[in-house]
Amino acid sequence: MSPANLVEITNLNIHFGASRVIDNVSMALKQGEITTLIGPNGAGKTTLVKAVLGLLSPTNGVIKRSPTLRIGYMPQKLQIDATFPLTVERFLKTAAFASAEDRLQALQSVRAEALLKQSVHSLSGGEMQRVLLARALLRKPELLVLDEPAQGVDINGQIELYNLIASIRDRYNCSVLMISHDLHLVMAATDQVICLNRHICCSGHPEQVSTDPSYIELFGVPGAENLALYSHHHNHQHNEHGDIVPLDDEQEHDHSHCGGHH
């Protein structure tokens, strides 16, 4: 295993009965890098993440991870029964051993320190995600695994959350593996994108993946339907029929904008 890799997956297959949920996947999580898994519903993203976490064992294939690897995990959704009286503080106390100062610091790094004494039942979707992230940070992780961190968060909150994740990577110097539905929102904060549909359709830098034919086949033309709010580089434009036509070199530009079409 290369020292720069925290996790190495080779020819991973996971079958549930007759269905092949993960089909011959090989990938590596590099030290200090943010890897984003995208793919349609039922593509096996959560299954792959659970295999990385050691919650699921492979049908065959190898997952190599250092036995001492400290993983911080943020599940997709936490359903705590309403009969369970729990403040954010007490919730964080059930995680790894940590001092009160550690807990406050973890909440501060996700900008949620004001929530310390609140009931977990009164949190909004975005606040709960931040608290979960803080809990993952308490373990001083070398690898952060985030299963759809932006779920239930509005669009502006999502962008903020992805920026927060990128800044946490810089501060904690950890690797990040996360699942996302929307490549365009995570683009700016991702080093490696893996497009999964049971097998790996394509992978690489976000710009590369967003123009890959197999990505476009799964998700359509980038930015054509989604609200796009990101910094990017055009190499084409659309004519009045929506077809792609190449741009003249001098017309290429970098900008941030908000809108569906360009």
């Binding site: 659970k50 050691g54 993983i71 599940p75 059930t94 809990r135 373990r139 695994v145």
Partner: peptide, 18 residues
């Protein structure tokens, strides 16, 4: 007590946390 609470909150999270 503490592991019982952790498992009650979320079993997968608890397992990842050891």
């Amino acid at each position: 007590w503490n592991p019982l609470l952790a498992v009650t909150i979320n079993e997968e999270l608890a397992q990842v946390e050891g």
